[in-house]
Amino acid sequence: MQAWDIQFHALSVGYGNHVVLHDINATLPAGQISVILGGSGCGKSTLLRHIIGLSRPLTGSIRIGGEDLFRLDRQAFRRVRRQMGVLFQDGALLGALTLAENVALPLSEHLRLPKPLLHEAALRVLRMVGLEDFARFYPNQLSGGMRKRAGLARAIIAEPRILLCDEPTSGLDPVTAARMDALLLAMHQQYEHMTTVVVSHDLASLRTIADHVLVLREGRAVFSGSLAELEASDDAYLRQFLRREADEGQMALHEPPHPQVQAALEGWLRS
């Protein structure tokens, strides 16, 4: 069986003249859960868009299962991308379709199967994520956590070799976030050869699901290794990140307000 690892070679990505990530060299191993970790705005989601092939890198390459993604012809590119299932940040479910129709979409568009069979396939994965009873609901009738779980169901219905998740626990309460983590682990156990890549800045999630971690900071990869290696690292930034310590050097917490603004504000609050 082909190993679906993801390799970055001298990868620089960005938009126009603005470079977001510089010279990334790392491998996300096949069959493991890799977490791409980093602060807000460090380029995690941008990197994910490049792995999916939605944006082209400025320089360097991304090799998926040994194939250079951006040197493939159109047919080969589509063949590689068919091996991917993607959970977008808010689920990205189509608003005009019910949950069951959304989840069945990758099958209904590409396979000639009878409708009852497609519905049954959708119900199977909806059952896996605990949403079987909501099959006839529309996305706008669901909570954020439910939309993410439905997005996960759609991502796995075609049994991809690579599952990519963009911030699956962001904006969720701790219990729902823990349920999402448990779901990702369960998926990984069910599809044991599946390479899973999770973009996140959620430390609790990282410690629950990660086999491998890639840490990004200020547009560069500052760590790539196992979770145990990350925890044992004595790098000052990594320790600060893992301990959730504020970067006080960049903040001016005791800056006094402008007297005119202060006076106007006090007058408004008294009125």
Binding site: I52, L94, G95
Partner: peptide
């Protein structure tokens, strides 16, 4: 436009639709 800004069009492309 709403489909574009909520990643729905990207989702279609990723599903090879």
């Amino acid at each position: 436009g709403v489909m574009r800004i909520t990643d729905q069009i990207d989702a279609l492309d990723v599903m090879d639709i």
